[in-house]
Simulated assay, not measured.
Amino acid sequence: MNVMKLIIMGMVGCLLSVPALAENNEVQSKDDQKKGSAIITIFSDFHTGFGNVNDDRGFDLDRAYIGYQYSLPHGLQLKAVMDFGQSDDVGDYQRIGYVKNAMISWKSGKWTLNAGLISTTQFKLQEDFWGKRYVMKSFQDEYKFGSSADLAVSAAYKFNDVVSADVILTNGEGYKKVQVKDGLQYGAGVTVTPVKGFVIRAYGSFNEAPEDNLEGITNVAAFMGYKNSRFSVAAEYNWQSNAKNVKDQDQSGVSAYASVQFNKNIGMFGRWDYLDSKHDWNNASDGMAGILGAEFKLGKYIKLAPNFRIWSPKADGVDKSGYFYLNASFAL
């Protein structure tokens, strides 16, 4: 933990010193003026099950993000976001508040640096490409291959219009725990955009074992997708070794998703997931998931997505389940 604190303090110090490098007589352009904006995002839904899950129905408040970001001169930005959502540690009807982001960023030329409680890079591109976080989390987030934010430092460099690379050093515990045990997580990724709209990414990370009797966790991910103004299609493969720090407790899975935009306000989307575990250690959660729905944009800030879902478990003797969802997103 002390090492992490020193690294973050050093990164923050470097970022804060950047403006001092400018000449005193530099005249700020209009784009360099201070700019602030509120962040308010709410995800909610109504859902009802069919058949053996017919009694599972009701309204839900999945997430509420409240924060503020402030753009400073010389490429600096400050951002703080609170996340109010469900937790496995308390009752289903309770909501817990967490600090999701408390970070400083610096962009200059081909470099982007971040420090603090930041968004991780493990599946950020996949989540943005999927674009339906309010409907369902991206694969690695949904099946707990990693956390979407953590106390960390990261750096990204854009070599040219085709190739960029990034590295990240995190606590490895996620933003809900921040740091409760020893060990760090090291990650690196490469993104290739050979033509406009077509993206290929490879990412790998290693999370050190927090205790001597536990195993380190390795994550590997590969992604490929194409998107234009009318449609998108993508697929990803994910593999994790020693899940939950248990030796040989490996798991893997694939996710494929696509969308079609009829006009600026109406579109359709679909997704298919498959999760599998080595020697069926996670058999109760293994299986296939499918989703098919439509998206309606009501003005600038509101989106509605009626959709049907099916879950087909791998375990023998467990029935398939189907749901209808009406997901809603409000984002300022």
Rank of each mutant, 00 (worst) to 15 (best):
F324Q: 13
G58C: 13
N171L: 12
V220H: 15
Q94F: 08
G131C: 05
I291S: 10
G67S: 06
I42T: 12
G293E: 02
Q122V: 01
V99N: 06
Q240I: 06
T41R: 09
S259A: 14
L16D: 09
I168F: 05
Q69T: 08
E215G: 01
D166F: 01
P210Q: 09
Q77T: 13
V3G: 15
Q126K: 13
G75R: 03
A315Q: 08
G322S: 14
G97I: 11
A221Y: 09
Y68G: 04
V195T: 05
G13I: 05
S241I: 04
T48S: 14
N283D: 02
G51E: 07
V135N: 02
L21V: 09
D83Y: 03
K176L: 01
Q122N: 02
S285K: 11
S17D: 05
W239C: 02
M11F: 09
V246C: 07
S17L: 04
A243V: 12
L304R: 03
M224W: 13
W111K: 07
I7A: 08
Y203F: 12
S312W: 05
N171W: 08
Q86H: 15
H47V: 09
D92I: 08
K34G: 01
T112P: 01
S29A: 15
V163C: 00
V12N: 07
L61Y: 12
Q140G: 10
V135C: 01
N265A: 06
G267M: 07
Q94K: 11
Y134C: 02
L326C: 01
G116E: 00
D276L: 06
G253R: 08
W281Y: 15
S37T: 09
L78G: 10
L76R: 11
S277L: 11
A234T: 08
N238C: 03
Q28P: 05
P210V: 07
Y68R: 05
F84G: 14
F139V: 02
S312C: 12
W281A: 12
F50W: 14
T191P: 01
F123N: 06
G225T: 07
A328G: 09
K247R: 00
F59Y: 14
K300Q: 15
A64V: 15
V162A: 06
S148L: 07
E142C: 07
W111T: 13
D89W: 10
A102P: 02
Y237V: 01
D319M: 06
D88Y: 12
M4F: 07
Q185N: 12
F59K: 10
V178R: 10
K107P: 00
